[in-house]
Design a protein around this nucleic acid. Structure first.
Lengths: 235, 235
DNA sequence: AGCCCGAAGATATGATCAAATTCCGCACTG
DNA sequence: CAGTGCGGAATTTGATCATATCTTCGGGCT
């Protein structure tokens, strides 16, 4: 058997309730999720279980579970013959996704706007400022992170957890493509409607908030479509 | 590394390629999915891994993966302390779900209507006939199955796989509650808008098809809400 | 009532089996 | 003689299971 006894000395948990570490499969899921969401994985890239077991230092069962969840999320794709990869969005995919994103995210924005506490407005302004800073600095990762946070925080305050979760899933599908867009256009040329949205939010203009978010979604997706078109020409 | 190299004799499998059985975790997923979709599991019912490993005769790894997928689908719920159960829909849940269902399913119906081959119409008529038969016979399981098939076949022909998949997920959330509704009202009092929808489909009335499906969804959800209200009173 | 202990169940690992892709050498053809 | 395609072994990776450890829950004892 194994001669080396495994280091069990960390087994002594302090008597205080130290937030009970989340299970490994959850940690793996969150890590992979972040990697996909922020474009650390390219569309089409292959994902192997064994590769992740040692890059993340986890056993295969937790990695397996995380991958299944991400496939169900649409963040990864099962390629028939038991291979897994990061999906490449087709024009049809984008067309369907934009429909749902517009509907759901606009609704979430309206709901958040309907009872937005002042602290929420302040937090969003803070995030948007950091976003502008990242754009000015040409910091692609920072841009992707803050842009995500802006929407995510807004939706988390819409009192509609199911819709918010659906929106998060949709963002997961766009993550890899968004990174490609940034690589192509740089951060300078990525307009958003956050300022308009914040103005409407301060004014209590619920419909205006929804409209601004809808246009924001549109603009983001337009960039993806533009890059797709370029790719199609060069192929 | 392991110093003992195992011989690794290659046992050549018989050449009979008999339809390549799907992996166990997929089979388990499909079975559980069907059980939830057709109301064989009650809302609130606890689900244990070990219970499934022997009721389905599978190992725990495949069962685990199937459960994670279903949790991600919203068909099961992770109860914080490592327990898993069939979710109970709250009034807020239903309110959010109805919004998405109306939007997505109406859109799917319109897309299917836009290029519906005659065979599709025939197939839907066939299914609707079987549905009526199940209603007349008071066959709850048959009703749930055929009602699901009616929508599922329609959406599968909408040339929008991503939207169709989202619709399937939404149906999974309603499955357990629908069974409860049938138990409460019987099959006799479950009106649908399938006849109107088929008429519009035959007439090529795209908007009419969308409207009929929207009303069909509404009616189904109204029943769920009604039962919820009853429960709330009795609690 | 509070505490301890045992049982049931969940999490995680590593081993083992199976499949698929890759790679390499060989023969065949132009 | 060189290039090309084919077949099979070797390697890589996925799938499944058996097992060990840890958590949580509930019952019984003080």
């Amino acid at each position: 058997m194994n001669l080396i006894k495994k280091p069990a000395e960390n087994a002594r948990k302090p008597a205080a309730k130290t937030a009970a570490a989340p299970p490994v499969h959850e940690q793996v899921y969150q890590k992979l999720r972040a990697q996909i969401l922020f474009g650390e994985m390219a569309p089409g890239q292959a994902v192997t279980i064994q590769g992740l077991t040692d890059s993340l230092g986890a056993g295969m069962t937790p990695v397996r579970e995380a991958i299944r969840r991400l496939i169900s999320d649409g963040a990864l794709m099962f390629q028939g013959n038991r291979r897994v990869s990061v999906p490449v969005l087709s024009a049809e995919d984008v067309e369907q996704l934009i429909f749902v994103r517009r509907t759901i995210e606009a609704e979430l924005a309206r709901r958040a706007a309907r009872h937005a506490p002042p602290e929420l407005v302040a937090e969003l302004e803070q995030i948007d400022a950091e976003l502008d800073f990242a754009i000015a600095a040409g910091d692609v990762s920072g841009y992707l992170l803050q842009n995500y946070r802006f929407h995510s925080v807004l939706y988390a305050n819409s009192q509609a957890p199911i819709l918010a979760e659906m929106a998060e899933r949709l963002w997961l599908r766009f993550g890899p493509s968004l990174r490609v867009v940034c690589g192509r256009f740089g951060t300078q040329n990525l307009p958003d409607r956050h300022k308009e949205m914040l103005a409407a939010l301060r004014a209590g203009d619920v419909e205006g908030v929804g409209l601004a978010i809808e246009q924001d979604v549109d603009q983001g997706v337009q960039m993806v479509i533009a890059v797709q078109a370029e790719r199609a020409v060069s192929s």
